[in-house]
C-alpha cells in the first residue's frame, strides 16, 4: 500500500496529489510563501530562492516551487532564519540594479516593492552597484528598462512556453547577464515577436512596460494570460 499522501506544513496536516509541489500544497493550506520567479502555468526553475523552506531531517533548504511533496514530509515555511534569508535576498536585488521606485512606472504595483514592505525592509545593508544599463523603446507598443530587471526570466518562459515565439532569452553570464530579443537586437527589430504582450503582463517589476505609461501608472490585467495558460495546460507537455 503506497504511503498515504499526507505531509505537515507549519504543523498543519495537508493531503497532496502525486507530483504536486510543496508550494502548491502550502497555498492550498492557506500558508503564504513568498515567490518572485514562480508564476502559475509557467515551468518552475527555482531561481529567486525566496520560496526556500526548511525540511525536517535535511540540512539543506528546499525551494518549495520545485520540490515534490513526499509522504510524511514535515515543512517549516516561516522561521526567523528563513525570514532573514528572504530579507537579504530582496536587499541584494534592490542593490544590484537601479530600482528607483519613486520615478518608476510600476511604483505601487511592483512585486519586488511589495515583498520589501512585507519583509519590513526599511533600508539596504549592501552597497548599491549603480550599473550602467540601457532602455530600449524601439518597439511600437512596449519598452524594456534593464535597470528594473531582476532576471526572473518569466518573460523568457511565457514567450517560449505559452506564446511559442521564444523571442526572449538570457545573454551573458553572472552579474552581466541580460534579457535579449533575437540576436540582442532592438526589440522593435525582432522578426519573431508577435507583440502579444504576455511578457509585459507577467513582468513582476517595471522592466517591461506599455509605452506611454506614466510614473505609477502601470496596471496589469493577468486574467487574459491565466486563461491562455489554462487552455494550454490540458495538453501541455510541460507537466
Amino acid at each position: 500500500m503506497t504511503a498515504e499522501r499526507k505531509m505537515r506544513i507549519n504543523d498543519v496536516q495537508v493531503k497532496f496529489e502525486e507530483g504536486e509541489t510543496v508550494l502548491a500544497c502550502a497555498r492550498r493550506a492557506g500558508v503564504r510563501i513568498p515567490t518572485l520567479c514562480h508564476f502559475d502555468g509557467l515551468s518552475d526553475i527555482g531561481a529567486c530562492r525566496l520560496c526556500l523552506v526548511e525540511v525536517e531531517g535535511s540540512a539543506q533548504l528546499a525551494a518549495s516551487c520545485v520540490t515534490r511533496a513526499e509522504p510524511g514530509m514535515v515543512i517549516r515555511c516561516h522561521t526567523t532564519r528563513l525570514a532573514e534569508y528572504r530579507k537579504v535576498i530582496l536587499e541584494l536585488l534592490l542593490a544590484e540594479r537601479n530600482h528607483v521606485c519613486s520615478v518608476c512606472v510600476a511604483n505601487g504595483n511592483c512585486e519586488l516593492q511589495d515583498l520589501a514592505t512585507e519583509h519590513q525592509i526599511d533600508h539596504v545593508r549592501f552597497d548599491y552597484q549603480f550599473p550602467a544599463l540601457g532602455v530600449d523603446l524601439s518597439h511600437g507598443q512596449f519598452g524594456v528598462d534593464h535597470n528594473r530587471c531582476i532576471l526572473c526570466t518569466r518573460c523568457v518562459r511565457v514567450c517560449d512556453e505559452i506564446e511559442g515565439a521564444h523571442t526572449w532569452d538570457v545573454a551573458g553570464r553572472g552579474g552581466t547577464s541580460r534579457v535579449i530579443t533575437d540576436l540582442a537586437q532592438p526589440w522593435g527589430e525582432s522578426q519573431t515577436c508577435t507583440s502579444c504582450g504576455k511578457c509585459v503582463e507577467l513582468c513582476p517589476t517595471g522592466a517591461l512596460f506599455p509605452r506611454g505609461t506614466s510614473v505609477g501608472g502601470l496596471v496589469r490585467d493577468r486574467g487574459r494570460i491565466e486563461l491562455a495558460m489554462a487552455h494550454r495546460r490540458h495538453e501541455s507537455c510541460h507537466g
Binding site: 534592490l94 537601479n98 530600482h99 528607483v100 519613486s102 520615478v103 526599511d122 533600508h123 539596504v124 548599491y128 549603480f130 550599473p131 550602467a132 544599463l133 535597470n147
Partner: peptide, 13 residues
C-alpha cells in the same frame, strides 16, 4: 535611504 533620484547620475560615470 537609497540615493533615489539624486543618485541616478551615478551610472553615467
Amino acid at each position: 535611504v537609497t540615493g533615489n533620484v539624486t543618485a541616478m547620475r551615478n551610472p553615467l560615470g
